[in-house]
């Protein structure tokens, strides 16, 4: 597995999947931050810059394409936002299935990168029953924390 994560709530969500991902051969791609550096210490992490503008996404997608070519994961999982977009695009090109974890705080129609990631993902994991109908292929996982 490759897990893509930023900081803050996104990191909380991906860390909350620990009972699942610790059973698998997992590596991380993350944005450096005060929380990610400490929370992911000791785990195999590839640090990537946060693509803060759309032009940066092209370079990020190329880096993601190369990284996924080296690591050849079975699945890419993310709860993230901007950094997730290039990884989900690259995963599509590599024919690697993707799972996007929707944050508990999403109660309305996703917009921006959240909507892009939800559409790029093969499956969206949602934390509230009423969110199942919000996506093409959603699976209720329940509240993670």
């Amino acid at each position: 597995m490759v897990i893509v994560s930023g900081g803050g709530g996104v990191l909380l969500d991906t860390l909350a999947l620990r009972p699942w991902w610790q059973q698998h051969d997992t590596s991380w791609v993350a944005v450096r931050g005060a929380d990610t550096e400490i929370a992911l210490a000791g785990l195999p992490v590839t640090w990537q810059p946060d693509p803060t503008a759309w032009p940066h996404l092209f370079a990020a997608a190329w880096r993601a394409f190369r990284l996924l070519g080296h690591s050849r994961p079975d699945v890419v999982v993310s709860a993230g936002r901007r950094l997730t977009v290039p990884f989900f695009v690259a995963a599509r090109l590599r024919r690697v299935p993707t799972v996007w974890l929707e944050t508990l705080t999403q109660t309305g129609r996703p917009c921006g990168t959240a909507r892009v990631n939800a559409r790029l993902a093969r499956v969206v994991l949602v934390q509230r029953p009423e969110r199942v109908a919000a996506h093409r292929d959603a699976v209720l996982v329940g509240e993670l924390y």
Partner: peptide
């Protein structure tokens, strides 16, 4: 407060999803 998912249910759900994808 709504309950949080148990570790067992979390593992079962995500394993089921990944098995389907693979």
């Amino acid at each position: 407060l709504p309950p949080a998912v148990s570790d067992e249910d979390l593992i079962a759900t995500v394993d089921r999803v990944t098995r389907r994808l693979l």
